[in-house]
């Protein structure tokens, strides 16, 4: 096993981790603000992937135009889901929202199968994104570089938004105490909507990346990465954005290294490995790596 092979596996892990991290951020933000475990969040990956496919291949839009459109469309989908499914549940016990999110998830999967058929579709990016770049010992396609770089830019932008802007301050305040946030004059409906919009936009972009990375998409593709991103959010400490980012990369790297470094016979157990990692980390750090103890809130 050469150094080059390991370096290559690390890069692959970072690519996968970028996508997990982007999805995990949304999980964490939504849980942080309304204590909702949103199982429908993974389905936004699927929606983002199919939107990208439509924009690139049906409408023949250039990639630099399609990508921002996917981001915006993801935000709109998030707003619709929040308004349609979760706002009516506001104030209900936590488990009600959880069940509602499972319902939305199953509904979106079946809607996908109904409209798009369960047949997997090939997902191709323009040639200039498929060309292979060789840097030292590692090689990757341009699209993989774009995935890693744009994930970093988006996460940097998000951290700036959350910590340096008025909306971000309102989001953090609402996450801590909805009543007091209202007393400050913060419109919590708008703040919660913005949180869904941002989280869903990032998940939709992760869907674009997913298609680019694996080259094939189907209406059920969101479920497993959604679940794993949830694991990433929990590992990092749910409610914490840096935690979600860290958890995403830890999960992506460990999954790829597990498959890449152990004998091939074990590679079918990659998902078992992911969830074992979760259990081990939670045994040692019950609130995740960067998480703080959070009180439940209906």
């Amino acid at each position: 096993m050469s150094g080059g092979y390991i370096a290559q596996q690390i890069v692959n892990g970072l690519i996968l981790g970028s996508m997990y991290a982007l999805v995990a951020i949304g999980f964490s933000m939504i849980y942080g603000i309304i204590r909702l475990i949103n199982f429908a969040h993974g389905e936004i990956i699927m929606i983002g992937a199919f939107l990208t496919l439509g924009l690139l291949q049906k409408l023949q839009l250039p990639f630099p135009v399609a990508a921002p459109l996917v981001l915006i469309a993801g935000a709109v989908v998030g707003i619709i889901i929040e308004k349609g499914a979760f706002r009516p549940m506001r104030g209900a016990p936590q488990v009600t929202g959880f069940i509602a999110s499972l319902g939305v998830s199953i509904m979106l999967q079946n809607l996908g199968i109904l409209l798009l058929t369960a047949q997997p579709r090939n997902f191709t990016f323009p040639d200039y994104l498929q060309s292979v770049v060789q840097i030292g010992l590692v090689s990757f396609r341009t699209i993989d570089g774009v995935i890693m770089a744009s994930a970093l830019v988006l996460m940097g932008g998000l951290l700036f938004l959350v910590h340096k802007t008025r909306l971000g301050m309102a989001m953090r305040a609402t996450a801590e105490n909805i009543d007091v946030a209202r007393l400050m004059g913060i419109n919590i409906n708008r703040t919660i909507m913005a949180t869904f919009a941002i989280g869903s936009a990032l998940a939709a972009i992760a869907g674009l990346m997913w298609g680019g990375k694996f080259g094939q998409i189907d209406p059920l593709l969101g479920f497993v990465p959604g679940l794993k991103s949830f694991v990433a959010a929990v590992i990092g400490g749910v409610g914490s954005i840096p935690g979600a980012i860290l958890g995403g990369y830890i999960l992506g790297l460990s999954e790829v290294l597990f498959v890449g470094l152990l004998p091939p016979i074990y590679s079918a157990f990659r998902d078992a490995f992911v969830f074992s990692t979760l259990i081990l980390i939670l045994l040692v750090l019950p609130n995740g790596i960067l998480g703080k103890k959070m009180e439940d809130r209906a």
Binding site: M169, R172, A173, E176, N177, D179, V180, R182, L183, M184, G185, I186, N187, I188, K292
Partner: peptide
């Protein structure tokens, strides 16, 4: 009138238990 509008009318409430945002 909902709570988020009252502050703008010149009435501010300092709640029981202080309601400090501990992470801010």
């Amino acid at each position: 009138v909902p709570a988020e509008t009252i502050t703008g009318l010149g009435v501010t409430h300092c709640p029981e238990g202080r309601g400090i945002f501990s992470q801010l």
